[in-house]
Design a binder for these strands. Sequence first.
DNA 1: ATCAACCTTTCAGAAACCTTTCAACAGCTC
DNA 2: GAGCTGTTGAAAGGTTTCTGAAAGGTTGAT
Lengths: 224, 224
Amino acid sequence: MKLLLIEDDAILADGLMHTLRNSGYKMTCAGSGKAVEQLLLAQDFDLILLDLGLPDMDGLTLLRSIRRRKLPIPILILTARDGINDRIEGIEQGADDYLSKPFELRELEARIQGLIRRCYGGFASTIALGGLVLDTQQHQVLAEGQILPLSARELGLLEILLLQAGKVVSKDRLAQRLAQDDEALSDNAIEIYVHRLRKRIESCGVSIRTVRGLGYLIEAADAT
Amino acid sequence: MKLLLIEDDAILADGLMHTLRNSGYKMTCAGSGKAVEQLLLAQDFDLILLDLGLPDMDGLTLLRSIRRRKLPIPILILTARDGINDRIEGIEQGADDYLSKPFELRELEARIQGLIRRCYGGFASTIALGGLVLDTQQHQVLAEGQILPLSARELGLLEILLLQAGKVVSKDRLAQRLAQDDEALSDNAIEIYVHRLRKRIESCGVSIRTVRGLGYLIEAADAT
DNA sequence: ATCAACCTTTCAGAAACCTTTCAACAGCTC
DNA sequence: GAGCTGTTGAAAGGTTTCTGAAAGGTTGAT
């Protein structure tokens, strides 16, 4: 799960990065509007944490510009201002949730979890499909109660697909998201992992369908 | 259990370090705000002891700056001031407990224990898993009533794992938390201790599972 | 038929982890 | 101090698992 933190207070940023990383999120931080632009062009994120109360960056403008791109990324606003107006404005501009400073870490994590759930996976902190249950917190997949042994890449792939269950995910996108650092994987590598994953989950009532020319999508297995 | 003592009176600091070390805590001391910053960036602590009554350091500011980073570390305030206002202010700023000087050493230890319990271990002062019982006060582990003979490192490792029973703890984190002073242990060292610990506890209905690429987790042994 | 997209198998190299061995060291006893 | 005992972690080598390139087969569209 890849989060982008937009925060220009280095100290707070540092603490949040540290904590959230410990909770199992892949974290990236941007301290300026330009950095945000670049990162959004170059990478995909699952969620954006945006601090509005920044002295040298207009958060709302940034928010609008993110939304203008029609990126389907949930955005969680952090702000020192707690005026209702700001709140409303933020939400009108496309924020998905709102948290006023000072906030409890625990609450932040809860909101993040909540957003992920709402945007990607129904209402549980797990996403279920067929006989599979992905636990987005523990980063493991259960098949009928048993932990499904998956390698890091396989798990990553399954996570991405499940988060968009029923929707097509392009090969490029997968290659992008699975990469550890910068370089994307080759198309062939994706094919290999799709293949391996199919073998692992074939008995779980879930299947990965190929949509020629577009990508893959995961769905409950048809009684075909 | 790793404590950070923030205290600039060298004599008092020294005495506390000594006493608490004797009680089985790993102690680190910082005498200035800068030192605190650096230590918090570099290491993880389980608890912070912060002396507010410092002549050349504003403790409350420090407290606020620690809390601003949203680090989930319990903080115990020590202070010469006993005004109720200070107390309230301290707690509002994010302290988890409060102790006025002069205090009994015994009381300090009790408070530390209490905080640790509240923050990490539910309500008991022992943590049980399978046939093991960790006594967080006595710093010993019982296996079916018998004291399990463990070296310091082995005990430290087991303690960290048990405090997070069922969750994966990364090797880095273990390396970090086990270190006495500053340098983290090598990965190999962790592997060695996991190995040794496994041998010691294998007959206790508890097992340490390897989660490739992520770390280790301790759990009640499967009836496989 | 032809071509691009996709599937599948194989395999070597890499990475992560396990295990043993051993030297350095600390604490203890006599 | 000398000798003993237990602890610690570096070193080295072994094992397992993961990873993705390569190569060839299959499928579907035109």
